[in-house]
Structure formats: structure tokens, C-alpha cells
Amino acid sequence: MDTSAYVQAVAEQTRTFAEWVDGRDATAPVPTCPKWTLADLVDHVGAVQRMVAMLVGERLSEPDSAYARYAPAPADSSQWRTWLTEGAAEAERAFASVTDDTPVWDPSGGAAGVPFWSRRLFGEACVHRADAAATLGQRYDLAPELAVAATEDWLATMTSRGYWENRPAFADALRGNGQTLHFHATDASGEWTARREPDEVALERTHADADVVVTGPATDLLLVLSRRRPPEASTLDIQGDRAMFDLWIEHMNWVTDA
């Protein structure tokens, strides 16, 4: 997917999310984010989209000024739908005003902030819609191709240089000497091999024999890797070193407590 496709998908995912949460109980606990209420989830989704819209639209080279203008969600849940769709529209306008090579802060440690943020917002929208589904008893459906793209975002973010350098607990736990995990979607084109090295987790988009091999539908891969579905509640086939896989899942926490 390219930047425009990611941004369009963000708007689509957000519209569904907004319909689900509209007028619902703000205090409802989010089972997939144990310390969050539905209000926290809505606030996170909408506020992040607005902050990214500032970063991209204003071509910011560091995040502090965008973070300083954090805009909380309305307390009245009957206003959430409008607030969320307006935030997604702000993001669409911001990305439409730039090109992929426009300089924008890139927390991954790369130098492609616009593509990074379009993909990251898409991954956020897909995963947090799963949180809303779990909270509100909604059926979670995601086209396999979109689930592959969201899984790519999750794995690429977690294995980025910026994540390694800024999350020392993750680096300490996942550093290794060549141990490998392979993830393979069975209903769409997507497979990844993660290799644990002393100074990084290297990610390759290729088939490989590995110490752990995880195969199954793309949506199950996304929800298990993002810790939104326990492996035992999925249809994934997990072969090899289960302890290594469990260690990996334990540290797949992009947002603290989420």
C-alpha cells in the first residue's frame, strides 16, 4: 500500500470505529487494554490522529509542539462520532498537502516520516478498532490484504531502530545471536522473518526456516501479534520453540498498557 491508500483506509476504519462508539458508555472497560476505559480508547485514537495531522501538515522535525497541543476527546460520548471523523479528515488534508519525501519527524529512526506516519495511523486504526469490537461485542472483520498491511506496520514498527533505541526493556529481552521467528499469512500474500541479533531485530519479508514458525489467517496473525487475541483463541499453527514465541508476544507492547 502507498501513502494515499493508507490514509484512505484510516478514514474508512475510523468511520466504523466512530459508528461503534457513538453514544456508548464512556466508562466501559476495554478488555484488550486492561487499564483503559472506552473513553481512554476514543481519546487515544482521535488525539493521535490530530497530532499526526499537525506533524505532517506543519512539516515538524520534532514532536514536542504537536504533543503540547494535545486535544482530548469530548466527555459526552454523543459527540465522539463527529470528533473522530473530523480528526480523520484533518489527517487526510495534512497528508494531501505533502509528498512522501517532505521532511517530517520519523520516530522509527529512518528518514521517511510521511510514509511512516500514514502506515502507522493505519495500523493504529485497525488494532484499536479490534479493541472497540472487544469492548462493545462487535464482530471484527478485516480483509486479509488489509490485515497483512497492518501486520507489516506492527512488525516494522517493533523492529525499527528507533523502537530498539527508545525501549531498552524490549532491546534487552529480544537481543540474541541469530534466533529466528517466521510469520506467514495463509489467506493473503504476507510473510516475515524476524532475526534476533545483539544490536537489533532484523526483519525480512521472505520465507525461511526458523526456530519458530507461525502460520494462519492474516487477521489472526495481526490480533495475536498485537496482543489483541490470545494464541490459544486463534487458528494459528505455532511450530518450534514455543518459549521464544511467548517471549516475543510478551514484549509486543507498542503503547504502554495497551
Results as ranks from 00 to 15, higher is better:
A28T: 09
P231I: 06
T102D: 01
P63L: 10
S160V: 08
S61E: 12
D246F: 00
C33N: 04
R50D: 00
K35T: 15
W248K: 02
L174K: 02
P63T: 14
M1W: 11
A111R: 00
A171R: 08
S108Y: 09
A258T: 08
V7W: 04
W192P: 01
T235A: 15
R196L: 14
L222V: 10
V56Q: 06
E58V: 09
W36V: 01
D131R: 06
G87D: 11
Q49N: 14
S97Q: 06
T157S: 10
D40S: 13
R195M: 05
A89K: 07
D2H: 07
N166I: 11
T159R: 11
E19Y: 07
L60G: 10
C126D: 08
M158F: 03
S78V: 12
A26D: 00
T159M: 11
G240Y: 04
V255N: 08
A39M: 10
P74L: 04
D187Y: 10
A208Y: 06
S160K: 07
V212C: 05
A88W: 00
R15A: 13
D100T: 08
G216W: 03
E165T: 13
G23V: 05
S189P: 09
S108R: 07
P29S: 06
A188R: 12
T215K: 13
P217D: 11
D76Q: 10
V214N: 02
G137R: 00
V148F: 04
T215V: 14
P31N: 14
A47D: 14
G190D: 09
A143M: 14
A218C: 11
F95I: 00
P231Q: 03
D2W: 02
R119E: 02
